[in-house]
Structures are given as structure tokens and as C-alpha cells.
């Protein structure tokens, strides 16, 4: 006689436990959202970043937060979800900054210099080709490449964090080069005051 693992069965009698877990997760998310919206009031404002007052502090959170947060809210890739900084793009399986993206990074660096009390998270993304884990590492390389570039332009490295989402959060879900090219990107999320 032996004891069997609970993971092998018992789906039905685990419903209560899972329901509770789900409820806890929902409450945690709700709490996080409340915290998010209280620290970034402009994120709830559809006019954020578009009016003449777009340079006030309240608009720094526009863009709806990280790509993961946007994915969770179903707004990833939606118009106006980009934030004040511009994405850069990469060649397949490559993480070098392309010459045409240097100008974008200089503009981003200028914005960050003008808003010295902000922090930025650089998100590295890849297209859907290749394996998930390799793409996570490749996305990290892309994020780091932009961080290094911004640092050489005078933005303090303390203000720049990086994260990779690999191929997990595509902006575009068609299976063609146009789409892949859009997805091979660094996205810059302004995180408000330090």
C-alpha cells in the first residue's frame, strides 16, 4: 500500500481550494490596480499626454504601465498605450542597436534628462520564431543594449531597469515578417518619480 500524490486526481474536490486561490489572486490584483491608479492618476485619464498640459507630472504614467499589465487588461498594442518614449526595433536573432534607432534613443534620452525624477523600465521583446527560453535571453540582451546606449547618453544607470518578455507578449499576432518586425522591439515604460 502506498500513498498516492494528490496531484494525480481529485480535481472536483479541489474546487473550493482553487476558488479561494482565485479569489485571493483577484483581490491581490485589485489591490495592485488600486495602488497603481493612485500613484499614476493620469493612467485613468483618456486625455493624458495629448493636451497642452501633457508635460505635467500627472501624465508621466500614461501608457498604461508594463506590457504585461497591458496584456492583463487586454490593452496591449491598443492606440495610445505607448507612453512618452518610443520603441526601437531589431533584426532577427540580433540585439545590436540599428543606426536608424539611434535617433529614437537620443530622443528618449533627452526626455529622460528633462524628467530627471523618473525611472524607466526597458522591456525586451522578440518575435515568435525560436524557442521560448532562448527568446527570453535574447529579449534581455535587447533591453540591456538600450540601457547601455541610454547610459552612454548620460542617463544614470540607476534610473534604468530591464526586463525580458521574450516572445510572450507580441503586439501583432500574424505569422509574417511585417508582424515579426513589429514584435522585435524594446519598449520603454516610464515608472514615475524615483
Amino acid at each position: 500500500m502506498r500513498q498516492i500524490r494528490p496531484g494525480l486526481h481529485g480535481w472536483a474536490n479541489e474546487m473550493n481550494a482553487w476558488s479561494l486561490g482565485r479569489w485571493v489572486a483577484v483581490m491581490a490584483l485589485a489591490t495592485a490596480l488600486a495602488a497603481c491608479s493612485s500613484s499614476k492618476p493620469a493612467a485613468q485619464n483618456p486625455q493624458a499626454g495629448t493636451g497642452p498640459g501633457g508635460m505635467n507630472e500627472g501624465n508621466l504614467g500614461s501608457g498604461g504601465g508594463s506590457s504585461l499589465s497591458q496584456f492583463q487588461h487586454g490593452t496591449l498594442g491598443a492606440p495610445g498605450s505607448g507612453g512618452p518614449l518610443t520603441d526601437i526595433h531589431f533584426d532577427f536573432d540580433d540585439y545590436t542597436i540599428r543606426p536608424q534607432d539611434g535617433e529614437i534613443l537620443r530622443n528618449n534620452a533627452r526626455w529622460l534628462t528633462d524628467h530627471g525624477n523618473t525611472r524607466v523600465q526597458v522591456e525586451g521583446h522578440t518575435d515568435e520564431r525560436g524557442s521560448e527560453e532562448y527568446n527570453l535571453a535574447l529579449g534581455a540582451k535587447r533591453a540591456q543594449a538600450a540601457k547601455d546606449y541610454l547610459t552612454t547618453l548620460g542617463v544614470s544607470s540607476d534610473r534604468i531597469s530591464t526586463i525580458s518578455y521574450g516572445k510572450e507578449l507580441p503586439l501583432c499576432t500574424e505569422h509574417d515578417e511585417d508582424c515579426w518586425a513589429q514584435n522585435r522591439r524594446d519598449h520603454f515604460v516610464v515608472q514615475g518619480a524615483q
Binding site: 496531484g7 480535481w11 482553487w18 482565485r22 490584483l29 504585461l68 492583463q72 518578455y165 510572450e168
Partner: peptide, 10 residues
Amino acid sequence: LYKVTNNDTI
């Protein structure tokens, strides 16, 4: 079928 994770992430 047994669900190990139950969260809204990756």
C-alpha cells in the same frame, strides 16, 4: 488534468 498555476501572468 490538474492545474498547477492559476494566475493572470505568464
